[in-house]
Amino acid sequence: MESFEKGNILYHKRNYIEALEKYKEALLTNENNSTILYNIGVCFLKLERYFDSIEFFKKAISNSYNSKYFYNIGYCYTKLNNHKKALVYFNTSWAIDNSDDDCKNAINLILKKYKK
């Protein structure tokens, strides 16, 4: 079984640290694979390591524009209380996929804070 597949199994078991290691192994032979980079970012997100998460989501973006990559960076910035940066990434995500209700809700929550 491939490292990536093992990482997926571990991720679904919520074993994020071991999943992270398997994804990093998979990255050694597929260094520009956006899906692997994204999955590493998600593991860091689950471990509340937001700066590491942002780094890997940005690497994934450099290979492929996907609204969920931008959305997750926005989410990380929200968790880091940097709402201005969060709003930039949520808006970019929304521009790519304006049917994403989670993104729309995130934008509206931040805008409500600015209106106060």
Rank of each mutant, 00 (worst) to 15 (best):
A60V: 09
N39L: 12
D101K: 14
A106E: 14
N8D: 14
K13V: 00
K22M: 14
N63A: 11
Y23P: 03
K115D: 14
L111Q: 13
Y65P: 04
E55L: 12
I110S: 01
K79Q: 05
Y75P: 00
K13D: 03
F44W: 05
L45T: 10
W94E: 01
A19V: 06
E21D: 11
I107G: 10
K104E: 05
G74H: 08
S93Q: 01
I107A: 14
I40K: 03
A26P: 05
D101W: 09
A60G: 08
K6P: 01
Y65H: 14
A106H: 07
E5Y: 12
V88R: 11
T92H: 06
G41C: 03
N63F: 14
N91Q: 10
Y50I: 02
K79G: 02
I9R: 11
E31F: 00
N91L: 09
N63I: 10
E18V: 03
L47F: 00
Y65W: 10
K115S: 14
A95H: 11
C103A: 07
K68D: 15
F70E: 07
F44Y: 15
I17L: 02
Y89N: 06
S99E: 13
K104V: 00
K59Q: 15
V42Y: 15
E31V: 09
N39K: 15
S93F: 00
K59T: 08
Y77M: 06
A95K: 12
E18H: 09
Y50V: 04
Y11E: 04
N33I: 01
A26R: 01
T92Y: 07
T29W: 07
A86P: 05
L45M: 13
Y75K: 08
T35Y: 13
K6W: 06
H83M: 06
V42G: 02
A60E: 05
Y38I: 05
S99D: 06
S34H: 11
F57A: 01
D52K: 11
E55F: 15
L37G: 10
S99G: 08
N33Q: 02
I107E: 11
A86V: 02
N15P: 01
S67Y: 14
A19H: 02
T78H: 08
N63T: 13
Y114H: 07
N98K: 10
K59M: 11
N82Q: 04
L28R: 08
E18P: 04
S34K: 08
D100F: 03
